[in-house]
Amino acid sequence: MTALYVLDVPENTTVAKVAAEFGASVGKIGPYFEITADGSIVIDRRATGCRHAVWYSCIAGVSGGTIVQHDKNALQVDPA
C-alpha cells in the first residue's frame, strides 16, 4: 500500500481533500493526514489551490511508494 503523510495545517487541507476526490483513502494519524491507495496517489495542484511554496513543502512522509512527479501540475506517488 502506498501512503502519503501530510501535516494537518490550514494550508494543506485541500491537498487531502483533492486526494480523496481522486480516489485515495484519507485517514488521520495524530495531526497528520494519512493518504493511502493500493495503486498510485495522484493530486492535481491547481485543484488544491495551493501556492507554490505550500505545494512544494506539503509532504511530510512517504511509505510504500516513490514520488514520480512533484511539479507545478501534480504530485504522483507510485507503489514501490
Binding site: 501512503a3 503523510y5 495524530g30 497528520y32 509532504i59 511530510a60 512522509g61 512517504v62 511509505s63 514520488i67
Partner: peptide
Amino acid sequence: LARKAELI
C-alpha cells in the same frame, strides 16, 4: 521522507 513516514 521515507524515514519521516516511519517516525510519523
